[in-house]
Amino acid sequence: MYNLTAYITYLIVVVTAILYVGHLCYKYGHVYIAQIIPEDPQLTHQVNKILLAGYYLLNIGYGIYAISIWDRLHDLIGVIESVMTHLAYITLILAAMHYFNMLVINIILKQKSNTNN
């Protein structure tokens, strides 16, 4: 009973967060990709879509994995602790992915500007 409550709570919150962050990254990420590939807007759009698909796959995979390793819960405090712990992990993963992507884009843009000068 407690595990089911935790799963449902976790899934509602994590799916909402994944969809919201994915939408934001997709909506505003094309600007950064367009700086890397300015000569081909269609390719920019396709790369942005592929990044979104990879983002969703990674996070869905982690979400399924997190549920599969969940310990048996025996009380409401355990539900809250477990849900918060798993949400913290996926939030850290989302943040790390974002900063890694921004770092890679920054490196590519610096290399591109150095070759143009």
Rank of each mutant, 00 (worst) to 15 (best):
A6K: 00
L4Q: 02
Y10Q: 04
S82K: 08
H98K: 14
N116R: 09
A95G: 12
F100E: 10
A17F: 04
I67V: 08
T16R: 09
Y20R: 02
H98D: 10
G61Y: 00
A88R: 13
Y65I: 06
A6T: 00
M84H: 06
D75P: 03
Y89P: 07
N48Y: 00
S68G: 02
G29F: 01
L58Q: 07
F100Q: 11
I8S: 06
Y62N: 04
Y28S: 03
L76F: 11
L43R: 15
Y65Q: 01
Q111G: 12
E39V: 13
L43Y: 11
T115D: 10
Y56A: 14
Y28W: 09
H30V: 13
L19D: 01
G29M: 03
A53V: 12
L94T: 05
M97E: 15
I33E: 06
N114W: 09
I67C: 05
L58A: 10
T9R: 03
I12S: 00
I77W: 10
I36Q: 03
L58V: 13
K27G: 01
N114G: 01
L52V: 08
P41F: 11
G63Y: 03
R72P: 03
I77S: 10
L73C: 01
G78W: 04
I107H: 10
I50V: 14
Y2K: 00
V14M: 03
I93N: 06
I77Y: 11
Y99M: 11
Q42E: 15
T91D: 04
L103K: 12
I12L: 05
L109A: 05
Y56D: 10
T16Y: 05
M97R: 13
L92Q: 08
S68K: 02
G63M: 02
N117T: 08
V14P: 00
L51R: 11
K110E: 13
N117E: 07
L19T: 03
K110P: 08
D71I: 07
D71W: 03
H23F: 11
L92G: 09
H86C: 09
Y7K: 02
N116F: 09
T16L: 12
Y20G: 00
A53G: 12
K27M: 03
A96D: 08
I37P: 05
I107D: 12
L87W: 02
N101A: 15
A34I: 01
L51H: 11
K27L: 00
Y89I: 15
E81S: 08
I105Y: 07
Q111W: 08
T44V: 14
M97W: 14
L19W: 05
L11W: 04
I93E: 04
I69P: 02
H98P: 08
N59H: 13
N101F: 15
D40G: 10
Y65G: 01
Y62I: 04
A34W: 10
Y32E: 14
I33C: 06
Y26C: 02
K110N: 12
N59W: 06
A66W: 02
A53L: 14
A17T: 06
P38A: 12
P41N: 11
A88K: 14
G61L: 01
N59D: 08
I108K: 06
I105C: 05
Y28L: 07
N59L: 15
E39Q: 15
N114F: 09
I50N: 08
A17R: 06
L19H: 04
E81L: 10
I108T: 08
I77T: 10
Q42T: 15
I64N: 02
N59R: 07
S82D: 09
A88Y: 14
Y99C: 09
V104I: 15
P38F: 09
I80E: 04
Y28P: 01
L19F: 06
P38W: 10
